[in-house]
Design a protein around this nucleic acid. Structure first.
Lengths: 228, 228
DNA sequence: GAGACTTTGAGAACAATTGCACAAGCGCGG
DNA sequence: CCGCGCTTGTGCAATTGTTCTCAAAGTCTC
C-alpha cells in the first residue's frame, strides 16, 4: 500500500519523469543512480530530485546513490502502476483515434479497453482491436471492465455532458482533452490537456522575443546539459 | 506592442483560459463581464482573475467589470494572437496526423502549414491539404513559410534529434509531445505535453482513493459551481 | 448630488515550491 | 579501523504563487 505521507502536488507531477528516467536506466543494466544523474535524465536539478524522493522515504544510500530497481518499484507502487488500469476513451474523432492507437499508454500501465462515441455512424466501427460502443452503453462498459479512468476527447460542447455521464457511470478520474472547462463532483479527480493553450503560451514568449531574445520559458526553465 | 511589464508564468498560463472564456462571452453579445463571472467561465477564482488581469494593466471599470471586446483585444495582443502563427509538425504518426487535422489550432490563431517526417514512405503523402515533406527539407520549409513554432510528435528516440534540427532550421518555440526530455539552447522556448504522465498523475490520486475518498486533485483544486 | 450598491485594484498575509548549503552516513583503500 | 571522498537527506532562506481584505472608484436611484 502507498505510504500515508502527504506528497506535494509538484512532486507528484515529477514522479512520472523519474519513473521514465529510471526505466531507461534499468534498460542499460545500471545498478544505481545518483540524484545528479537522475536529475539530468529527468531534466530537473539534483536538489529537487533528492527532496522529491525523500517524500517517499529514505530509499537512497549516502555515498552511493539510489538502487535503480528498488526505486523503480517504490515509485511504481506510489503511482499505482503495479497493476494495469483499464481506461475508456469517449469521443472517437481524430484525437480519440490517435489516443486509442497510442503505444505510450500500454507501455506505462494503462490499457485502453473501451471506446465510446455519441455518433451512431461510428458505433460498431473497429479501431485496432476494439469496437466503438454507444454513449448509452457507458455505464455497462464501465462496470463490466472495472474502469476508473476516463478520457474525454470530444468537441468542447460535449465535454461537460460526457463528464457527467462518466461520473454517473462510476469513473472517478478524468483526463479532459476538450478545450472546455469541466466541473466534477468532489471525490472525482480531473486533469486537463489543452493543445491550443500550450501553443498560446509559446506564442506569448515567442512574441516577446522579437525585440530582445531572452531565456527559455515554460516547463523547462533552463538550458540543461545534454545527458550522455 | 506588448507591455514591458513582467508577467508571472502562472498568469501567462491562465491568459489563454480567459481568452477562451471571453470568446464564448463575446459570442453571446455580452458587453461586459465581472471578474466573478469570468472566473466561473475559466474555472478559477475571482481574486486570481483580477490579479492576473491587473498585470496587463488597469483594464476594468469599478462597479462595472471588464469590457469584453476590449479585454479580448488586450489579451490577444499580449498573447501574440493578433496575427496567425505558421506551425510545422514533425512526425506524422497517429498523433501527428491527429494534430494536423485538429480544428482547435486554426480557431486560435495557429495554422499548420507544413508536415515533416523522416520516413521516406510517408514523404509525399497528403494529410488534409498538405503533403508531407522530408526531414532534410526542414530548413527550406521553415525559411519559406517563416515558421517560428514547431511541434514534435515523433517517438521518444527521435525527439532530441528533431529538436536540434528544428533549432538549426530557425525555429525558436517548440511543443514536444514525445515522451522524452529534450534540451534546447537558451533563447528557444520549450514546452512539453506528455499524455502518459497525465494518466500517471491521475493514477496516483486514484490509487489513494480506495481506502478513503478525498477531494479533487490536479489542475482544478475544488469542485466548481457549474456555470449557468 | 447624496447615498446605496457593485466591483476593481492592490497591499499584505499566507502557502507552496524551489534552491542552497552542509552535516551525517556510507564505502573503500590502506 | 581510520581517514577520505562521495552522495544523501534536510533545515533554512528566497522566491513564487494564492487568497483575503478593503479602500477607491464607478453606476444607479431618487
Amino acid at each position: 500500500m502507498p505510504s500515508a505521507r502527504r506528497i506535494p502536488e509538484a512532486t507528484v507531477a515529477r514522479l512520472p519523469l523519474y519513473y521514465r528516467a529510471l526505466l531507461e536506466t534499468a534498460d542499460q543494466h545500471v545498478g544505481t543512480v545518483s540524484s545528479e544523474r537522475l536529475a539530468a535524465l529527468a531534466g530537473v536539478n539534483a536538489a529537487k530530485v533528492r527532496k522529491d524522493l525523500s517524500y517517499l522515504g529514505s530509499y537512497g544510500t549516502r555515498g552511493v546513490g539510489y538502487d535503480v530497481e528498488f526505486l523503480l518499484h517504490q515509485i511504481s507502487r506510489e503511482l499505482g502502476l503495479t497493476h494495469d488500469w483499464p481506461v475508456v476513451i469517449v469521443g472517437i474523432g481524430n484525437l480519440g483515434q490517435a489516443l486509442a492507437n497510442y503505444r505510450g499508454f500500454g507501455a506505462r500501465g494503462f490499457q485502453i479497453v473501451a471506446l465510446v462515441d455519441a455518433d451512431p455512424a461510428k458505433v460498431g466501427t473497429r479501431i485496432g482491436d476494439l469496437s466503438v460502443a454507444a454513449l448509452d452503453d457507458l455505464p455497462r462498459v464501465v462496470a463490466d471492465c472495472g474502469i476508473a479512468i476516463g478520457i474525454i476527447a470530444t468537441p468542447a460542447g460535449a465535454a461537460q455532458e460526457v463528464a457527467d455521464r462518466l461520473v454517473d457511470a462510476g469513473v472517478t478520474s478524468i483526463l479532459n482533452f476538450a478545450p472546455a472547462v469541466v466541473s466534477v463532483p468532489s471525490g472525482v479527480s480531473l486533469r486537463k490537456v489543452d493543445l491550443a493553450i500550450e501553443l498560446q503560451i509559446l506564442s506569448f514568449y515567442q512574441q516577446r522575443k522579437v525585440p530582445a531574445v531572452d531565456g527559455q520559458h515554460g516547463e523547462t526553465p533552463r538550458a540543461a546539459e545534454r545527458v550522455r
